[in-house]
């Protein structure tokens, strides 16, 4: 899932404060699931922006709508934004982009898109994938070194690991985890295989995907 987070109110207000009628559009897929873009967050943001706007002397009117997925034009077609002069999207970057591409009025992002992640209990997510285009999870027992290691190292822990914790102090060392998991799976020999540097040309050219899926373009 795409994990998102609300931007600071000031930043949002700078974008929408100059408009008079703004429609907040939530997204009931990833953004809702990461507790930042569902109906409740839309309602809360409307209240917050209204309060903030009135304190700054802006006169902005806000209303709400929820789309099932903002990254699908067919869902966006159902959105009636007539009479509004701007849209504030509570979707991920793809949502904002799709809404903006399908609209004749300015579309602003209310959220920052953080990562592709997994849920870790309520209101907690972990980055799992960086969409690099060349997956090595098979060699690392499902722990992505590109994502989970702060430096994206592909060949083992750096010298910064302290008691199994990353030198940034905010996460366990991915390579210690990979080592443990390889060991528990009896695959510790794989740790010794040197992984070559990533082929970054794959992600550099991934925009080709917006045209075809191989074999489907006959």
């Amino acid at each position: 899932m795409i994990v998102v987070r609300r931007k600071p109110i000031d930043e949002i207000l700078k974008m929408v404060g100059r408009h008079t009628r703004v429609m907040l559009v939530g997204c009931n897929t990833c953004a809702a699931v990461s507790l930042a873009g569902g109906q409740k967050e839309v309602d809360t943001l409307i209240e917050l922006l209204s309060l903030a706007a009135s304190r700054k002397g802006f006169s902005v009117e806000f209303s709400d709508a929820i789309l099932e997925r903002q990254c699908e034009p067919e869902f966006i077609e159902k959105l009636d934004s007539q009479g509004y002069d701007a849209i504030l999207s509570l979707g991920c970057g793809a949502g904002v982009a799709t809404l903006a591409g399908d609209n004749d009025k300015p579309v602003y992002p209310a959220l920052d898109t953080l990562f592709i992640g997994s849920a870790q209990g309520f209101a907690s997510w972990q980055a799992e994938c960086s969409a690099c285009g060349s997956c090595v999870l098979g060699e690392t027992c499902g722990i992505c070194p590109t994502t989970r290691c702060a430096k994206g190292i592909l060949n083992g822990p750096c010298g910064g690991v302290k008691d199994g914790t990353c030198e940034l102090g905010d996460r366990p060392c991915a390579w210690v985890e990979i080592y443990d998991r390889l060991e528990s799976l009896g695959r510790i020999d794989d740790f010794g295989k040197t992984m070559p540097a990533k082929d970054n040309s794959i992600s550099a050219r991934c925009c080709e995907w917006d045209m075809t899926k191989e074999g489907d373009d006959s």
Partner: peptide, 9 residues
């Protein structure tokens, strides 16, 4: 951060 390579590479 670049980290195109790391020490081994």
């Amino acid at each position: 951060s670049v980290f195109d390579y790391e020490s081994v590479q």
